[in-house]
Nucleic acid binder design. Sequence first.
DNA 1: TACCACTGCGTGCCCGTGCACGCAATATCT
DNA 2: AGATATTGCGTGCACGGGCACGCAGTGGTA
Lengths: 341, 341
Amino acid sequence: MAVTLQQIAEAAGVSRGTVDRAMNNRGRINPEVAERIRLIAKKMGYQPNRAGRALAMSGRSLTIGVIIQVAGTPFMEKVLEGILQAKEDAERLGANVLVRKIPDMSAEKVIAEIEELRKGGCDGIALMPVDDRRLRETVDSLAEEHIPVVTFNSDIEDSARICFVGQDAMQSGRAAAGLMAEIMPDGGKVLVISGYPTNHSNKNRTRGFIEELSASRADIDILDVQYAFDDDRIAGMIAEEMVKEYSDLGGIYLTASGVEGVCESLEHCGLSGKVRVISNDLTDQNIRFLKEGKIRFLLGQDAHKQGYEPVMLLFNKLFDGKDPEKEFMYTEIVIKTKYNI
Amino acid sequence: MAVTLQQIAEAAGVSRGTVDRAMNNRGRINPEVAERIRLIAKKMGYQPNRAGRALAMSGRSLTIGVIIQVAGTPFMEKVLEGILQAKEDAERLGANVLVRKIPDMSAEKVIAEIEELRKGGCDGIALMPVDDRRLRETVDSLAEEHIPVVTFNSDIEDSARICFVGQDAMQSGRAAAGLMAEIMPDGGKVLVISGYPTNHSNKNRTRGFIEELSASRADIDILDVQYAFDDDRIAGMIAEEMVKEYSDLGGIYLTASGVEGVCESLEHCGLSGKVRVISNDLTDQNIRFLKEGKIRFLLGQDAHKQGYEPVMLLFNKLFDGKDPEKEFMYTEIVIKTKYNI
DNA sequence: TACCACTGCGTGCCCGTGCACGCAATATCT
DNA sequence: AGATATTGCGTGCACGGGCACGCAGTGGTA
């Protein structure tokens, strides 16, 4: 049976109200008594009853804002599903979840949404950020107002956000290397095309990929990393140039965008399906290329969790005062082939 | 804001208790009044408040029993984690979750546990079943007593369980075929070693694998399915016999157990790592073989969800009277290599 | 007519928690 | 010393829903 405040009160020889003050640091209590009560509560394994709390809190707001880009990709659809399920769960306990969908993800738009949520008296915010100085400053200012922020999908490094829910990029790069090793039995050359090198995901995926592949396969030659800056045209040009220069180029790993350009170039050179392409992210386009056999493997992430968890982390923080266990919550790396997409 | 019984009572010009009787069909009420109240409630969009109900129901049982095999595998650990998280969530709303761990999974043991739970006044049961006629009869008898049952990991087909949470075995077989196709660029022969053919998972994995591979790769020759009946020694013998008979045997797909026997045979023949092995289930042993490069791919399933959902489905059913959306809840297929395990 | 059972409804308590209020004891100030 | 704040604590109400109890009105029976 669950322990209640009343039981702790009896065990400590005080009243329920005193236990309440001790547990919730409300002040107006002798610090020594408070400490003793907290010790007893801990020993008894006290966990606040959600129903009781929800009931007592009813009438108050507890609003959680979620800022998400609506791309219409299957990935985003699943993230949204996760968010909506969390919304349902949280709202049944009296919370209020506002989902703000924005069509394109510029820092200005995100900041504008944050400001609007802040004005509306939002108690916590989950967002899919972009790398931007002003956005980081905005997040830090939210933290100063004690409005917790959780980032998901990508992170704002060195900011005051309480948790990041997303992929471990290094590990993702290593997994890609493992797959590349499996499908290149005869050795050969491998090319890594990275997006913006300032982006941490790109950097870490590249690092993980190279570390793993060079460690496991001495017979595979990894060419110098090329940067396509998230531009399909540049990625295509790089691919074309490289397959012409190196006839034994057997695989291309893309850390981010540029898939379309690469696939077109390979097709143009008559090498589509021959040069193995491994890429990231379950976008519509990538999935199409995967189904057509132009991409061998796609590395994705647990989309549902990436939507559900940020909301729930905020809810737990705001409702129970329970901080996230870690500063990062990594989602599983999902490997998709044309057969399990 | 949410509608309460009190608001309905005021709108209907009756007392809260009368609304309660109307909404919960408790009798002792004029049928016409009851109907009128239900109409008003519907019009106002009444949804019972979980917190209130949980609080009122506290002290009463709402006991959910979970029967799980403790194998100590990482997979089972994660399933257990999911169960324990669901336990926490449900218990915070006043439910009671009993986790029964049994060391080995014979039908007798499972039935014995079910009987004990039934005697203890359990309101719903989640279990990892084995294929057994008496077990199915037991589950059906539970259904007659209105004790809902959810199966997970494997199903009891054609039984009265309200939902199955686990893998779509056909799809898993297809994914394995896709991977096999990727790592056998030069064609050759492929062998399927199945566990007990009466087991639906084995049957469907085999079917999915053969359908997919024969459709996508005409240059790969799929040998007749061999049955190892979940016996390592038999599986090993089959593998040894086959690699001797067919020098171009390039891949083995195992639907279930027998991995150890196969790997030993391959090692014995000096073909370890050369003949590609793809298998199912993230057991300790399989993971070891995967890490050692003796297995190329392992197909697993979302373990956490497989623990969490069965308990939550039962809780939603018993607490809110909400039935599962579908009779099946399929978990995602996870592909593991030595690099993302 | 007196007694009882039954119907149809209102009332009040309970669950666990948050919080406002109030009261006694002590501390601080005039 | 007396008035006034502050500290430390107990008490009671509220929240929404389940359910026991009780009460008035009705109908039947001896």
